[in-house]
Computed example of a mutant assay.
Amino acid sequence: MQRIRLRYTKRGRLRFTSHRDFQRAFERALRRAEVPMAYSAGFTPHPKVSYANAAPTGTGSEAEFLEIALADRRDPEELRALLDASLPAGLDITDAVEASTSGLADRLTASVWELRLVGVEPQEAGHAVSAFLAAETVEVTRLMKNGVRTFDARSAVAGLEVVDESATAPADRPQDTPCAILRLVVRHLTPAVRPDDVLSGLRAVADLAPPVPAAVTRLAQGLFDEESGSVTDPLAPDREAVLAGPSKAAGPAAAKAPEGAGSA
């Protein structure tokens, strides 16, 4: 059985698809592309697909990950192209690598998010970010499955800054409309702190309230490097294990040594 790890996106209007919607679309793509899937045992066999840390509905993403198990071997790049052609535009398969190490989910410890705040001056956003980072705790409230819960949104935030909007502004956005762009690095803790929790925290500490909902996009997710503050590519260890050859890829050391490599 061959395992393939895929990176995919949620762009444009497809950011409003739920995780269940994506699952249905992906399983249809597997059938259209005639992928030789391995199936679970039992009375109702299912294709072996493992999803990892899906982005919330309504947020875009450039870095979603999943793993599939195949009954017959396939070239990862050819498989990527077939699946990408079988999915709607916006749900794009951007990377594929044979799984040569264990623990993909264990390497998804942090995410990098872009928060686009149309109608907010960058200077105003900068004051709010400074107040948020200066606070020891920032309590926010969110409705969860078990009811309303209050938790600290500050402890999960490893980085938050205002970035230069001029380099990332869409060509069709009116130039006279202010827009603050925040870059957020958040660790994957329990309970999970989402970008909208950080926005609630900015409102709590500095009364920052964008006039329109923020456009949120996950730019990367992977292993958080405490020393550099960066988030590394979670597929890099698999690429390095393949390049090292079968003997090294099979050993436990191959699964651990490369984890700090490959900045996103």
Results as ranks from 00 to 15, higher is better:
Glu98Asn: 07
Ala134Leu: 12
Ala96Ser: 03
Gly90Asn: 10
Ala81Thr: 10
Arg116Asn: 15
Ala105Trp: 02
Pro76Gly: 06
Thr94Cys: 11
Ala81Tyr: 11
Ala135Met: 13
Glu98Gln: 08
Arg74Gln: 09
Glu98Tyr: 04
Glu121Lys: 09
Trp113Arg: 08
Gly90Pro: 08
Glu77Arg: 10
His127Ser: 06
Ala71Thr: 11
Ala89Cys: 08
Asp72Phe: 13
Ser86Cys: 14
Val118Pro: 07
Val112Ser: 05
Gly90Ser: 11
Glu77Trp: 07
Glu78Ile: 04
Ala71Tyr: 09
Gly119Val: 02
Leu104Pro: 14
Arg80His: 13
Ala134Phe: 12
Pro76Asp: 06
Ala131Asn: 09
Leu82Ser: 15
Ile93Val: 11
Ala89Glu: 14
Gln123Glu: 12
Glu124Tyr: 02
Thr109Ala: 01
Ala131Phe: 05
Arg107Glu: 12
Thr94His: 10
Glu121Asp: 14
Ala128Asn: 15
Gln123Tyr: 10
Asp106Arg: 07
Asp72Ser: 15
Leu91His: 10
Val97Cys: 06
Glu77Asn: 09
Arg116His: 13
Val129Thr: 10
Ser130Met: 00
Arg74Ala: 07
Glu121Thr: 06
Arg74Leu: 05
Glu136Cys: 02
Arg80Val: 02
Arg107Asn: 07
Pro122Glu: 09
Ser111Ile: 07
Asp92Trp: 11
His127Asp: 04
Leu104Gly: 11
Ala135His: 13
Ser130Asn: 02
Ala135Tyr: 14
Val129Phe: 14
Val112Asn: 05
Gly119His: 03
Ala125Ser: 12
Asp95Gly: 08
Thr94Tyr: 10
Ala125Phe: 11
Leu83Glu: 14
Val118Arg: 08
Thr94Arg: 09
Glu98Trp: 05
Arg73Ile: 04
Leu79Thr: 02
Ser111Leu: 04
Ser86Val: 05
Ala128Arg: 14
Arg73Thr: 06
Ala69Arg: 05
Arg107Trp: 10
Leu104Lys: 13
Gly103Phe: 01
Val112Phe: 08
Ala69Tyr: 05
Glu121Tyr: 04
Leu70Ser: 06
Pro76Tyr: 05
Ala81Ser: 14
Asp72Ala: 12
Ala69Gln: 04
Val112Ala: 06
Ile68Phe: 02
Asp106Val: 01
Pro76Val: 01
Thr101Tyr: 01
Ser86Glu: 13
Ser86Pro: 06
Arg107Asp: 11
Glu124Met: 02
Leu133Ala: 03
Ala96Leu: 00
Glu136Lys: 06
Arg74Ser: 03
Ser100Cys: 12
Ala96Gln: 01
Asp95Asn: 09
Ala96Lys: 00
Arg116Thr: 15
Ala89Arg: 14
Val120His: 03
Leu79Lys: 03
Gly103Gln: 03
Arg116Lys: 12
Arg80Gln: 09
Ala128Trp: 15
Ala128Ile: 14
Leu70Met: 04
Asp72Lys: 15
Gly103Arg: 01
Ala81Glu: 15
Arg73Val: 07
Leu79Met: 04
Asp75Leu: 07
Leu87Ile: 05
Ala81Met: 14
Gly103Ile: 01
Glu77Phe: 08
Glu78Leu: 09
Ala125Glu: 12
